[in-house]
Amino acid sequence: MERWTKWLGWLLLVGMILNLYFIFIYAPIEKTMGAVQKIFYFHVPSAFAAFLAFFVVAVYSALFLLKRNYFYDRISYASAEIGIIFTTIVLVTGPIWAKPTWNTWWSWDPRLTTTLILWFIYVGYLVLRDFTGEDERGARFAAVFAIVGFVDVPIVYFSIRWWRTIHPEPVLMGGEDSGLHPQMLFALLFSLAVFLLFYFYLLFTRLRLEKARMEINEMKKAIALQER
């Protein structure tokens, strides 16, 4: 896996440079919003990567509870951390884009609010892991919490949708009027691929780190036993 991750890293480097080219040079400037619309190519892919990350957390948490394989638990943990990073990117780029276009930093619309709640849920997940230590109990608690939190997300979304809405409909597969210039669509899809690749790169790197940490712990234990 280590060599694999390395190759993925190089691929990602090339992809990111190309991505910048497609975003800033290839894709045309948006007519009404102007250059600020470029943030779209970072905002939307980050959101997708975040959702993928949290989906992985839920699936591997359930798998852990059923199979009790600690590898699954480490995947959930790593994926939750990465998901928080991507959600933070979404929550930071969103207001920067919203200020010039909606003339407000923040609105309590379903997608914004749900993303914020999502962020709180998974920050809670990380705090819980911090406060339980590394035994199997901590892994169990975190898995249960992740499953409950994941089921909660659609309900949060629908309850807030009842409440108010201003965020635009999804431009992909949206209504008839929604749609993107083909070059913009290409830039978006390319950026999406790069961000998903980035997610997997981070996930593998984080797993490798976790494995190394555990090996060191084992070594420390062995040394402590020898010294006694």
Partner: peptide, 10 residues
């Protein structure tokens, strides 16, 4: 509270 409040938002 850290665990419960985000989940009971609905």
């Amino acid at each position: 509270p850290i665990l419960l409040f985000p989940v009971v938002v609905p």
